[in-house]
Amino acid sequence: MMDKVIVSDVVSLYDECKGNAIAIYGAKTVAQRACLYLENKGLEVDLFLVSKKYDNPEILMNKSVEKIEDNKNKAWDCVVLAVSSKYVLDAGKELEKYNIKKLVIISPLMDDDFPFNSCGGNIEISANSFLSLKTQIFADETSKIIIDDGVVIKDNVRITSTNNSIIHICKSAYIGNETVIGADENSKIEVKENVDIGKQSEINAVSNSKIACGDENIIGHNSIMFARESDISIGLHTTVGPYLYITCHKTKIEIGVDNMFSTNVRLCSGNHRVIDKKSGKDITNREKIRTGNHVWIGAGATLLAGSDIMENSIVGAAAVVTKRMEPFSACAGNPAKVIKRDIDWKR
């Protein structure tokens, strides 16, 4: 007689599995996360079990994947049923006909603890990444999420890709607690290698937009990036203090290589519409914002549509920039003006 146990937290999962030879039924994302958790706690997972009715790999996380129907006479000490909640009842009944001493079922309450693809979208998560047990990942059937080797994603992060969109988090990136990353309507977000995104940040691209964080960027906590029908790009080795705010509508924002932004920097281009009262025409300034390479932006500075900060320049604290600033210069004030020329700066 099979001993069936339902658990609702990962501590109970560990307690029920320890001391047993463990197999995991389900070769999708939930099963991989369950395997990683148990192995990180020092338990050994022998293999993955799957059903013939699913298209599954032969090897998963360097472990063999066996069709359960091919092992009708084999006995298992402990099988962990790790599938998304809508399949739990059907899969549980299916496993009753096999020789399993203990079946540990992750109840629907565990959906928040293990990321899973609930609508058949394409989610690729490297086995060499680390995702907190509170990570939530969702892609619809038209979209894709890729998480590469060495990525660390902390607690309560939510990543969503919908309506022909792609999110790619590249090798060794770090995503802080409670960060939200979302792409919708033919949009793409790329977090490149060794990027560090601070806690409680939001990155959203909608309506044919692209957001790219360059290699080795550091984005401070509580930062916001929002693109609608726009492109936002940040060059490599750029560091940004907390409370960055970037909003971009029907235009581009380009941040160069080796920039340094202090806290509370704002870049706003093409936000709400401005209408000429007499003609009724939309006269919103949607010029792009650009910073060249090796630019230093002081605390509380604002760059509005049309700002073009040339290379090796400094923007003073609380400055409001609306136009092109010379290379190797420092500007300050509202509106910002060049106050010093023929200068450079170092970190």
Rank of each mutant, 00 (worst) to 15 (best):
C268H: 13
V191K: 04
I224M: 09
H294G: 00
S8A: 04
T291N: 06
V30Y: 12
A227N: 04
S84W: 02
D155M: 01
I203K: 01
G19Q: 08
S165A: 14
V50L: 00
V257T: 14
Y14S: 03
I175K: 03
N208M: 14
H237A: 02
N186I: 11
K346D: 11
S118C: 08
R290W: 00
K340H: 11
N156D: 12
D9W: 00
D148R: 14
K101T: 10
L95I: 10
D282L: 08
A23Q: 04
V157K: 00
V295C: 06
L60F: 12
E66G: 01
I105N: 07
G198L: 03
R324G: 02
D90M: 11
I255S: 01
T238V: 10
N163F: 13
C119P: 00
S329A: 14
T239D: 13
N293W: 01
I219M: 11
S143N: 11
S143W: 06
L38I: 08
S132L: 00
H221Y: 07
V79E: 02
E124N: 11
D15C: 06
S201D: 01
N259T: 02
A336F: 11
F261N: 04
Q136F: 08
Q136A: 14
L131P: 03
K102M: 06
G19S: 08
N208C: 14
E96N: 08
K93T: 15
P57I: 09
N259G: 15
F261S: 01
I145P: 02
L103V: 14
C248H: 06
Y37W: 15
N156I: 01
G42K: 13
D113I: 11
A31C: 03
M1H: 15
S12A: 15
A34H: 03
L60A: 03
L36G: 04
N128D: 14
Y98K: 04
F130I: 09
L13E: 09
K281T: 12
N204M: 13
D3H: 13
G241F: 05
R158D: 03
N204K: 15
A75K: 15
H237G: 01
L109W: 08
T160G: 02
V195E: 05
E141S: 15
I105R: 07
K53F: 11
K199W: 00
I339A: 07
A27P: 01
I219D: 02
I106E: 10
Q200A: 09
I218H: 02
S126M: 06
G176F: 01
K74S: 09
L38C: 10
Q32I: 14
L60K: 10
C119Q: 15
G241Q: 08
Q32T: 10
K97A: 12
G182I: 06
Y174E: 09
E124C: 10
S233K: 04
N163P: 04
L49R: 07
K281D: 13
P57S: 05
A82F: 08
S233I: 03
P335A: 10
I283G: 13
T302C: 12
M260G: 11
N122E: 15
V10F: 15
